[in-house]
C-alpha cells in the first residue's frame, strides 16, 4: 500500500509536468494543426532561464528574497522568456509556412528544435545542471510537508508546490480559454480557421496568443521540472515527446484531454517502473501508446476527425 501510494505520488508529480507540456502542444495543434516539435526545447529553455534567474537572485545559498517569492520570480521569468521565444518561433519559423504543404512546417519545427537544443549546448555546455532546491532555505522544501495518515508515505513541500502550481496554471488556462473573448476566438479558430476569419476574428492574433500561452506553460514546466531533477540541453526532445504523447492520449486539441493525458502518462510510467520493470519501462509505455493511437487515434476527449471533401 505504501509503495502504491508513493508511486501514485511520483506519477502525479511527473504527470502534472507532462500535462503542462501537453497543453502547449494541444493549444497549438488545435489551431494550426501543427505538431510543434520545438515545444520540448522551449521547455528546456525554461529550465535554463529559471536556473539563470535563480543565480541572479543570489543562488540557493544566499537568496536575496524570501523563498516563496524566489520561486514565484524564477517561474515568472521562465514563463516570460519562453512566451517571447514562442512568439518568435511562430513569427519566423511557422507563419511564413502557413499555407505551405503540411509537411513543410513539421520539418521547420524539427529544424527549430535542433537549433534551440544545440544553441543551449553552445552557450552553456553539455553538463547536467540542477537547481539544488534541496539546499534552499536549509532543506525546507524537502524536510517539511505531511505524512499521509496511516502510512509512512511523506509528501514533502516541494511536491505540493509543484503539483499545486501545475494545477493552478491549468485552471488559469482553462478560464482564459473559456471565459475571455480571445479564448473564445481561439476555440472558434480551432474549429474552422477560415470561417473564424470571415467572422472578423484576427486569426494571426489568436495564433500568437496560443503560442504565448503554450510556451509560457512550457517555461513553467521547465522550472517545476528543474526544481526536482537535473536537466541538460538535449533533454527537451524526449520530454517533449512524452508531452506530445500525453496530448495525443487525451485527444489532441482538447484542454481537459491534455491534462488527463499527462496524468495518465505519469501514472503509467511510475507504475511500470514500480511494478513491472525499470529496464523495459520506456518500451512498455511506448507500446501502450502506439496501440492507443492505432485504436483510438482521436484520443480520450477528442472527436473523430471527419474529413469533408
Amino acid at each position: 500500500m505504501d509503495v502504491f501510494l508513493q508511486l501514485t505520488l511520483n506519477g502525479l508529480t511527473l504527470g502534472s509536468v507532462y500535462a503542462l507540456i501537453a497543453l502547449g502542444y494541444s493549444l497549438v495543434y488545435g489551431i494550426l494543426k501543427l505538431l510543434n516539435f520545438a515545444h520540448g526545447d522551449v521547455f528546456t529553455v525554461g529550465a535554463f532561464v529559471g536556473f539563470g534567474a535563480l543565480q541572479l537572485l543570489g543562488g540557493v545559498a544566499h537568496p536575496a528574497v524570501p523563498i516563496w517569492l524566489l520561486l514565484v520570480l524564477i517561474t515568472l521569468a521562465a514563463m516570460a522568456v519562453c512566451a517571447v521565444l514562442g512568439v518568435a518561433i511562430e513569427r519566423f519559423a511557422y507563419r511564413p509556412l502557413r499555407d505551405a504543404p503540411r509537411i513543410a512546417p513539421l520539418i521547420s519545427a524539427l529544424g527549430v528544435s535542433f537549433f534551440l537544443a544545440y544553441s543551449l549546448q553552445l552557450l552553456f555546455g553539455a553538463d547536467q545542471r540542477d537547481y539544488d532546491a534541496f539546499n534552499l532555505g536549509s532543506g525546507v522544501l524537502f524536510m517539511t510537508g505531511f505524512t499521509i495518515p496511516g502510512t509512512e508515505v511523506r509528501v514533502p513541500l516541494l511536491r505540493i508546490v509543484v503539483i499545486l502550481c501545475a494545477f493552478a496554471l491549468m485552471v488559469v488556462l482553462w478560464l482564459l480559454v473559456t471565459r475571455t473573448k480571445t479564448g473564445k476566438a481561439m476555440t472558434a479558430t480551432s474549429i474552422d480557421r477560415e470561417a473564424a476569419a470571415m467572422m472578423g476574428i484576427n486569426v494571426d492574433r489568436v495564433i500568437v496568443f496560443a503560442f504565448v500561452l503554450g510556451s509560457a506553460l512550457a517555461g513553467a514546466a521547465g522550472v517545476l521540472f528543474g526544481l526536482r531533477a537535473p536537466f541538460y540541453p538535449s533533454l527537451g526532445f524526449l520530454v517533449g515527446l512524452k508531452g506530445f504523447t500525453a496530448a495525443v492520449i487525451g485527444g489532441i486539441g482538447s484542454i481537459p484531454g491534455a491534462m488527463a493525458g499527462g496524468l495518465i502518462l505519469g501514472f503509467a510510467e511510475a507504475y511500470t517502473q514500480g511494478y513491472v520493470s525499470t529496464r523495459w519501462s520506456d518500451l512498455i509505455v511506448f507500446v501502450i501508446l502506439v496501440t492507443f493511437m492505432l485504436f483510438r487515434p482521436q484520443g480520450l476527449f477528442g472527436k473523430a476527425d471527419i474529413k469533408k471533401v
Partner: peptide, 8 residues
C-alpha cells in the same frame, strides 16, 4: 546549429 538553420 547550422543544420537546424538550413532546415528552417
Amino acid at each position: 546549429i547550422v543544420i537546424g538553420v538550413i532546415l528552417v
